[in-house]
């Protein structure tokens, strides 16, 4: 892996992060006054002014912006307007729960999505292909909130097999993970299938067959590693969708994670919290994309070594 490749990707990642934070900062400041939401309607203007000064909202936006960055670099992301606790602490308390949900979803989606996609490609047009692809379309097109509510109706209300909401045991995880993982697994299965179909038609697969390589050797030694590049791409991109889905799913199942904190903070215009969460999500996304880029280089020698040589 050459240093130039890595440093260009890293610079781009930092630039993206800056763009996102700036955009959210400015949009949040120009779309409304937090004191309207947080203070009772009947408080006087001088009290509102007191809070504006306390939260630094009386200064011009550009000054707030510079101060925010200065503090952020020292690890200070402001305090919650609701209870004056440091925003970072409040967010960090929620992170493990969302990570728990996200990791379980991620693993579930990969464990189902990749083998199903591979099998659908190997036995193209068979019943297993059709079944997998129907499942993928279903998972992909079903909105999270709707699927979540359906699951609650069925498994919590009617069958009384699983708790309808909350956090604690593995049983609490089943429905949120299933809700989030269906769309993700569907996307992964579809992309794995098309990438595998593409590679399986390549001459080097037939060459391997002509050499006497078994089906499993052709698939797992030659086809899948070559198909992995587009699959890794979609997995990286899906992470964004998964975070969005987590916000909805956490609310449907009352999962005490970052997503629920975000919705309540947006409703109350608790700027420091919203801002902090956006930064966190942006860092996650940028890191994921950065890792995807690194994975490309690792997976494909043509990227790692530059496309030099005598290509046609």
């Amino acid at each position: 892996m050459n240093l130039r490749y890595v440093s260009i990707k890293l610079l781009r990642a930092i630039f993206t992060l800056w763009l996102v934070v700036s955009f959210v900062f400015i949009v949040l400041r120009i779309t409304g006054d937090p004191t309207e939401q947080l203070l009772p309607d009947d408080v006087g203007e001088e009290i509102r002014e007191y809070y504006r000064i306390l939260w630094g909202l009386d200064r011009p936006v550009w000054e707030q912006y510079l101060l925010y960055f200065k503090a952020a670099f020292q690890g200070d992301f402001g305090v919650s307007f609701r209870n004056s606790q440091p925003a970072l602490d409040l967010i960090w308390q929620r992170v493990p729960k969302t990570v728990e949900l996200g990791t379980a979803t991620f693993v579930t989606a990969l464990v189902f999505g990749i083998p199903l996609g591979v099998m659908a490609a190997i036995w193209r047009d068979s019943w297993i292909d059709r079944l997998t692809m129907s499942f993928a379309v279903f998972g992909f097109s079903m909105p999270n909130f709707f699927l979540g509510i359906l699951l609650i109706l069925l498994f919590a209300m009617n069958l009384r097999m699983l708790p309808s909401s909350g956090y604690g045991t593995w049983e609490h995880m089943v429905m949120p993970v299933f809700t989030l993982a269906t769309a993700f697994a569907g996307a992964i299965a579809r992309f794995t299938r098309s990438a595998m179909l593409d590679v399986l038609s390549k001459d080097y697969i037939r060459t391997a067959e002509a050499e006497g390589a078994s089906m499993s050797r052709r698939v797992w030694l030659h086809a899948f590693p070559n198909a992995a590049v587009p699959v890794v791409t979609i997995v990286g991109f899906s992470l964004g969708g998964m975070i969005g889905g987590a916000v909805v799913t956490e609310n449907v199942f009352a999962w005490p994670g970052v997503g629920r904190l975000l919705t309540s903070s947006v409703a109350d215009r608790d700027l420091a919290i919203v801002q902090g969460i956006v930064v966190l999500v942006a860092i996650t996304m940028v890191t994921a994309n950065f890792l995807v880029d690194l994975a490309y280089g690792w997976l494909d020698p043509r990227i790692r070594l530059g496309s030099g040589g005598q290509s046609r």
Partner: peptide, 22 residues
């Protein structure tokens, strides 16, 4: 057939495509 393939080999037209890029 797999065992017999040792004696029967194939050379493709598209040599670039006949080699695993990885």
């Amino acid at each position: 057939w797999r065992a017999r393939r040792r004696d029967l080999q194939l050379i493709f037209q598209d040599s670039r495509g006949a080699l695993d890029p990885r």
